[in-house]
Simulated assay, not measured.
Amino acid sequence: MQAFWSAGYEGASVPLLAGAMGISVQSLYAAFGSKEALFREALDYYSRTVGGFGARALEAESDAIRAVIRFLDEAAVNFARTTGTPGCMIATAAAEVAEPSLSAYARQLRTDSVARISARLKRGVQEGQMSAGFDCDHWAWYIASVMLGMSVQARDGATADVLHAVARIAAASIEANRRG
Rank of each mutant, 00 (worst) to 15 (best):
W5N: 11
S6L: 14
S6P: 00
Y9M: 05
E10V: 13
G11D: 09
S13R: 12
L16Y: 11
G22M: 06
G22H: 08
G22F: 03
V25C: 09
Q26T: 15
L28V: 07
E36Y: 07
A37L: 10
L38T: 05
R40E: 12
D44K: 12
D44W: 05
Y46I: 06
Y46C: 09
S47Y: 08
R48M: 06
A57I: 04
E59N: 07
R66L: 12
V68T: 08
I69Y: 03
N78W: 05
R81W: 00
T82H: 06
T82R: 10
T83F: 05
P86I: 03
G87C: 01
C88H: 00
A93M: 01
V97T: 13
L102Q: 03
Y105P: 00
Q108L: 07
Q108A: 11
T111S: 11
S113M: 11
V114T: 03
R116E: 12
K122N: 13
K122R: 14
R123K: 14
R123T: 09
R123A: 05
V125L: 05
V125N: 02
V125S: 00
Q126W: 07
Q126S: 14
G128D: 05
Q129H: 13
M130P: 02
S131V: 14
G133A: 13
F134K: 09
F134Q: 04
C136T: 15
W141Y: 13
S145P: 04
G149E: 03
Q153H: 13
A154H: 02
T159I: 05
T159E: 02
A160C: 15
D161S: 09
I169Y: 11
A172C: 12
A172M: 11
E175D: 14
A176K: 08
N177K: 15
